[in-house]
Write a protein that binds this DNA or RNA. Sequence first.
DNA 1: CAGTGTTATATACCGTGCTATGTTTATGAG
DNA 2: CTCATAAACATAGCACGGTATATAACACTG
Lengths: 165, 165
Amino acid sequence: MTNDQLKSLGYLALGSRLKRLGERLQAQTQSILAESGFTVPASHFPLLATLSTNGPMNVSDLACGLDLAQPGVTRMLASLQQDGIVTSKAHPQDRRVRIISLTAEGRRVVARARNSAFPRIERAVADACASLEGPLLAQIDALEEQLQTAPLSARTGQMKRRANA
Amino acid sequence: MTNDQLKSLGYLALGSRLKRLGERLQAQTQSILAESGFTVPASHFPLLATLSTNGPMNVSDLACGLDLAQPGVTRMLASLQQDGIVTSKAHPQDRRVRIISLTAEGRRVVARARNSAFPRIERAVADACASLEGPLLAQIDALEEQLQTAPLSARTGQMKRRANA
DNA sequence: CAGTGTTATATACCGTGCTATGTTTATGAG
DNA sequence: CTCATAAACATAGCACGGTATATAACACTG
């Protein structure tokens, strides 16, 4: 019994497949980050990158910018705040809004990520996607195979590989 | 603040984006099923389809066929069994293995899904994907937009639409 | 300025995936 | 036959997404 059932369902199972493919990517990204000594979860880096690029901003705008639901952002922020990566202060005019900023530590983390981990991850994912073409389902199939053949952490070199299935 | 932050991260955030895109698809698929009077969660249908196609099988083979981790399958089966959709009996030779089959009710559900809901969903997702082309990231961008423009439930007709972004 | 509605955030809880580990049963080596 | 290992399934608990709703502060109407 090989795992061909799913593919035979075509568009019907596209949702689960995308979801799980995403999870696999996130997990492998997490490994790369861990190798580089980061403890912040991979899923939080888009938030940090946004803060770093845009400067301090409030919770709703973060959620909108990241296309996430607000409670998810609140949860991430709670965790990041506990780790001393971000702080929040009240808005001077409107006491409902919390203004979130990176701490000094947070800025260090982002800086370190930007010039080591981010490029490695970019290269790895780009490498995994390098040979993809055609309709979405075909690309999903192929990407799944790519990740099974060689995980992201094996793809962080200088674009060397082209290992097709 | 629009939600362009994520896209600007490129391959870096591909994992989260795929995951959430998958979740969105699943949720919209769920709506279509609910409209057709199904209470079984969308995520369980691939399992039912597999059982229906292959006949009775054990937990591990199901997990392998669906490319899911075994505990997830066990959990789905518990829920489906509670709803009277599947039953399990012990393997005659090996008392470790549980053989899972559809109940009469389960077969009815699958039959009904196969000739009403499945085709609708296929059409809807195919419609949403109809205009996609190019590299994976571009297709993801476009599909996100498609789903925002018109949800799956608005796409269940006879392939009529081609609403590009 | 009281009351009502709206906005920003927080809390609670659910779904669906995962890994790690426990339990029971088979199996194979000595 | 006994013990060690392996296999099949179950359980526990985590992560990260979501929705629904509560709470607090603001803003506007009358």
